[in-house]
Nucleic acid binder design. Sequence first.
DNA 1: AAATAGACTTGGAAAAATTTTT
DNA 2: AAAAATTTTTCCAAGTCTATTT
Length: 568
Amino acid sequence: MDTKPDDGVYKWWAQSDDTIQSILNSDQKWQTLKHNGVLFPPDYQPHSIPVYYDGKPVKLDPEQEEVATMYASMLESDYIQKKQFNENFWAAWKELLGKNHTIKSLAKCDFSKIWEHLLTEKETKLNRTSEEKKAEKELKAKFEDAYKYALVDGRKEKVQQFKIEPPGLFRGRGTHPKMGMLKKRIQPEDITINIGRLEDVPPPPTGHKWGGVVSNNTVLWVAAFKDAINNKNKYVQFASGSSMKAMNDYLKYQTARSLKDCIEKIREDYKQQWTEKQESDRQLGVAIYFIDKLALRVGNEKDDEEEADTVGCCSLRVEHVSLVAPSSIKFDFLGKDSIRYENTVEVEKEVYKCVKGFIEGKKKSDMLFHKINPSKLNDHLKSYMEKLSAKVFRTYNASITLDRELKKLEREITSDMSVAEKVSIFNSANRQVAILCNHQRAAPKTFDTSVETMEKKIEDQETYLERLQQALKEPPKKPTQPLLPKTPESISSKIEAIKKKIDDLKQEKKMKIENKTVSLTTSRTNYCDPRITIAWCKRTDVPVAKLFSKTLQDKFPWALDCPNNYTF
DNA sequence: AAATAGACTTGGAAAAATTTTT
DNA sequence: AAAAATTTTTCCAAGTCTATTT
């Protein structure tokens, strides 16, 4: 099978929304599907370096060694300090060690020799010559090329994650009860291949068989396997740049846009619901209000024995909210990925009263909204608009916030501004969206040093500015190093330039600090209608590449030629 | 109507690639 | 040209939501 990307671009967005809709709604998502299957990680290469137990080296068989090496590779991560992680790892490793093994407790094990070995290996890899690196890269690319694309109805479409996950220790987030459990090697026998009925099935690795081969054209995955840790299916799907994913993404924004037509009615209705007799109505009204105003996720039920204890709107418990007199509510809970949501919001007095009532007589661990659930909430939303569900509010509010903030800031943009300055203005608008959606990140490792460097730069420029100003007042008898401009005019113009430079540096520093723990990428990738960004780029003369990386441009080809006055 | 399965989107961290600084 | 900083991509965990089963 030919593996190069197709040069002919499939401009599906030239069709009407109805046509696109009907393509996606069709039971048949494809007529023919042809691909080369998936790529397995390399087999484990034993290194024969022992674990030291009670100070003495213990030789391990390859299987035991492989798992010990997984642990050793994480020696410097935070996981190693966690009891749960160690318990789960030990349970898995102990089983591999078998009964009556020399190693009887994890506490007496020293993995540092393996860790050092891994470090040396990494070093060696880093120290290869650039020719070696290039040659290896090319070889790898050649090898992987066959898996990168699938042929869907004769079109070449990019496949995402065609590399099967290597074995490892499960790295659940937050206080995940399963952290440290052994994620076993996925075998071909675990994998179901989905491929067109008439196509040749890609051969499984020698000595193996596929777990199954199906030809299911109602779905868009090429392979599936069960994640044994969480007992959930995982799929090898198409990349965000594929026409099918992009079509879905486009329609997601179209749906969010059409929420504009009924948002006023929804807001009127939930305000009405706050005063209803039935508690379930009041709960529905308050929950939708939170989802709309605060961009909360719907909050499906989770199994606290099997997963980290995180919540969304419907799963909020009494302990996650507190009343702040006279009319505010304080939220403090762990949301998706155990990211903390902490926010005190002023609310209407009816909402305050409702929440007070919901809390009354309940324990801290009781559900705040015990009379509703995501199903009921989404069912109710369907009465306003086909395809409306809680997540549409997040897309809608994120996009409309970006649109509004950009328009607010656009007045500040002047024609003599540099691209970097304009990008920085875009980022301030983007940041409002990220804050709304609570997209956070760990502070970058280099944050402190990088702020220091900036401060140093500013200081240097300020010292220089003082020298210039001094020189203008009374020209120095002898020239001082470094040399200053000679004429008063050139000094004056230099002063202006330096002042501008200092302002820019200060602005850059401010941005850096404001973005310390805010992640802009998630909203840019998943929530902001790309047409808003592209239209802004056109109006302000900023190259789209400054805001959309190659991958994002590939994801949004349909947005590229939107009019420059596009409004969400 | 509640629980479960299935398929898909969203998410932050880490690795890799690229750019900037020294 | 090496190192450091920054940006982009990859990875895979963790959500949402609909359909199906009990």
